[in-house]
Design a protein around this nucleic acid. Sequence first.
DNA 1: GAGTTTGAAACT
DNA 2: CAGTTTCAAACTC
Length: 451
Amino acid sequence: MDDRLRNSSLLACEADSHQQHSMRRRCLLFEMAESDKENFDNRAAVSQTNGKSNTNDMKSVKPKFGNGSTPCMLPGIGLHLNALGASAKDCKIVKREPLASRSQSATMLGSITSYLDHSREEVLLREDLDKKITKSEMCDAKNGVQDAPAAFRISEEFNQGNLKKKKSSRVEQDGDSEGCKNCNCKKSKCLKLYCECFAAGIYCTESCSCLECYNIPAHEDTVLATRKQILSRNPLAFAPKVIRNSKSVAEIWEEPSEISARHKKGCNCKKSGCIKRYCECYQGGVGCTIGCKCQGCQNTFGRKDSECLMVVLKLHKPEAEEKTETCIKEKVDESLSKNKELKDEEQASVHLPCLPPLPFAIHSGIPCVPSNVAQSPTSQTLESDFVPDIMLHFQDERPEVLKGNCLPMAGVKTASPNSKRVRVPQNEFVFQKSRKLVLKSISSQSRNNAQ
DNA sequence: GAGTTTGAAACT
DNA sequence: CAGTTTCAAACTC
C-alpha cells in the first residue's frame, strides 16, 4: 500500500510538474503580451476606429480586439501585476468537479487518480491549443492582422475554455466570457477599483453593461493616469488579491516553509460569516488568516481562529482514526503551548493562522492532509459546489516583504493614509513551527499505529 | 428582473 | 486612524 501510495505520489508530482510547466508557459505568454506593446498600440488604434466615443452615448461602445477573444491587458504601469491579477481570477487550469462527487473517492489513491485524469485532460487540451496557435499565427500572417500575439490570445482562449465550465453565475447568465469581467458599473466610469475589469487590468468590452465607461483604449491616457494615481495610494492595488506560492500540497506539508495561500490583506466581513462570495477570502478560495478582521468567521477554506486546524483535520478524519485525532489534539495543544512560549520569547502578539486552505487540496485533487490521515466521506458535508476564481500553483510573485521569510514583520507602510488597505499578517513563522510539530507527531503516531 | 445585502474602495 | 459614504457584486425573492 505504501509503495502504491509512493508511486502515485511520484506520478502526481510529475503531473504537478507538468502543470507548473504549463503555468510557466502562461506567464511567458503574458510576458509576450507585455513585450508586444507595439501590437497593443496598433490594436488600440484599430479599436478606436472601430469603437465610438462614449461621450455622447450613455452606453459606451466597447472595443473588440481581433476575434474578440481576448481582453486587452493594459500596458505600462503594473502590467505584470495586472496579468497576475487577471489570471488569478480568471484562469483555471484543472477541470474541477463538484466537491460532493469528488469526496466520494474515499481514498487518497482515488484523489490522485482523479488529479492525474485532470492533468491528462489538460495535456490533451494543450496539444489541441498548440495546433490552434499554429493555425492562428499562419492565418494572422496571411491576413496581415496585427492583433494580440496568437499564443497569448489562444492561451486566454484556452483559459476561457476551461473557465466556461465553471464561470460564476453572473457570467453564465450574461452568456459572455471573453475574459472580460462583464462589469456593470454605473457611476464609477470603470475607473475605480470597484470595477472588476479595471481592477483586473483589462479594458471593458461590449459584453460589459457599464455606463459612461472610460476603461477603453480610446481613453487610455485617462486609464493610465487613474491607475497611476491609485498605485501611488496603494502600490499593491492591482496585485492579485490571493497570494499563492508554487509549492505542491505535498511539498507544503512536508516542509511548510511558506503559507500556501492567503488573501493579500484579509477580509473584513461582519455578517457573511466568510461563507459567501462577499468575502474576498472565500471568493478567492483561501482560508481566513490572522490578517483578517472578520467576525464570526466560518470560512470553510480555513477559519481565522486556531480551531481551523481541527476543522480541516476533522473534515478528513475517518471514523477509525479517533485515536490519531486524540493524538493530534494533544499535539495541537502542545503546539499552541509552545506557540505561546515562542510568543513570549518573541514578545510579539502572534496567533495561530490557518492551515493550508482546503480548496488547495480540492483544486489539485490531493487531500490536504498528511498521507496517513486518510480522506473521509465526511468531507462531503464540507461545502457547496462553488469553485473559487483562482489559479492553481500560482508563482509567488509577492514582494519579499510579503513573503513569510521576512520575519517578523509588522506590515507594509503604504503611501495611503488608510493602512487597512495593505496589511500583512504577522509572524507566520510561529505557525510554521507549530505545524511542523504537529506533522512530526502525526508521522510518529502513524508509524506506531502501523506497528 | 428588481430589490436587498454586503463589504471593499473611496472619501472625510 | 476611524468613521462615513459610495459603489458594484452577490444574493434573495
